[in-house]
């Protein structure tokens, strides 16, 4: 018999796989797809921000690159948007190699602020980039030309695609957790100087983590563009895109395998319902709530929900702080 600890992740995935098929309501199905999409980018952020403890506010760059790669290939060359996914991933590697080494010399707040500045710079550059639509942004195909355009009326096909990507990312993260790299990253997160003194190649492993993290964030951006069919500088490169990933991961628990997914399951429906109730995202009420949630987590439970888990599950082991 499989021990419970091994079985429950599988159970989670099975429940996720069938959940949206139980409802015929298109709003719920759409929210379900968005939950999984948010879980992908937050889990990707978690690799560098959670395990390695490098709190990046610059991940909107990767998300934007993925989204823009998809819609640029469609808009300028008529290719199906999903073709932009590999391009976005390659571009994310280039970006990681450029911004990784200089920002990794910064620690703590300095790293966060540095990545924040780079993301702000990227957003301004994109606004002024005429070829990529400037401030107006880019559109996806209005009508499906073939199946390759991945244009569905229903959100369920997107849900299935996103879930497959999430499963791949979580499987990779799980393998990484148990590998040498997982130990190195956690050592870096716990204390960079100490890790370095024990012989961990700190800069190299932070770069590996950023490469993985950036690639999956870019993929999430491409998938977003495929599903939504529109991106502008704010919805691709805006600072709130980064904030979303940080909050979702922090709520669920940074540096844990399922933390970001748990955070997404709670926060995304909250955000979507607030927006639906208050009419559009223009009011910003959702972000006031976001800000309050962030402050409450920071003040009372910096480990996120994962920190509270052992309190309700006596068999769980308390994660070392």
């Amino acid at each position: 018999m499989i021990p419970l600890r091994r079985a429950w992740p599988v159970a989670v995935l099975v429940i996720l796989a069938i959940a949206p098929f139980l409802t015929a309501n298109p709003f719920y199905q759409r929210v379900a797809a968005l939950v999984v999409l948010a879980a992908i980018s937050a889990s990707a952020w978690n690799v560098i921000g959670g395990y390695a403890g490098q709190i990046s506010f610059g991940h909107s760059i990767y998300f934007g690159i993925g989204a823009y790669a998809s819609l640029l290939l469609f808009g300028r060359f008529g290719l199906p948007p999903i073709a932009g996914a590999p391009l976005g991933i390659v571009a994310s590697f280039v970006v990681s190699l450029i911004i990784g080494p200089p920002t990794f010399r910064l620690r703590g707040h300095y790293f966060s602020m540095g990545t924040f500045a780079i993301a702000a710079l990227a957003e301004i550059l994109v606004v002024n980039w005429k070829f990529a639509g400037g401030a107006i942004g880019l559109m996806g195909p209005a009508m499906p030309r073939s199946l390759a355009d991945l244009l569905f009326r229903n959100s369920l096909p997107y849900y299935a695609i996103f879930l497959a990507v999430l499963a791949l990312l979580l499987a990779l993260t799980h393998l990484m957790q148990r590998s040498r790299m997982g130990f190195y990253l956690r050592a870096i997160g716990a204390g960079e100087r100490a890790a370095e003194s024990l012989g961990v190649p700190v800069q190299r492993y932070k770069l590996y983590a950023l490469l993985i993290s950036g690639a999956f964030t870019a993929l999430a951006g491409s998938l977003y563009a495929v599903m939504i069919g529109f991106v502008d500088p704010e919805s691709g490169f805006g600072i709130l895109i980064s904030v979303n990933m940080v909050v979702i991961a922090a709520l669920g628990g940074v540096g844990t395998l399922f933390g970001p997914l748990a955070g997404a399951i709670i926060l995304v429906p909250l955000q979507e319902t607030t927006n639906a109730l208050l009419g559009g995202s223009g009011t910003g009420a959702a972000y006031v709530a976001y800000g309050l949630i962030i402050m409450l987590i920071a003040r009372f439970s910096p480990g996120g929900l994962a920190e509270l888990w052992p309190l309700i599950n006596r068999n769980g082991r308390r994660r070392a702080a």
Binding site: I55, H109, A250, L292, A298, R299
Partner: peptide, 13 residues
């Protein structure tokens, strides 16, 4: 570190 960084960020939002 995470708590220090995100707390004032939340305040900004």
């Amino acid at each position: 570190m995470l708590a220090q960084i995100i707390s004032t960020f939340g305040l900004a939002l």
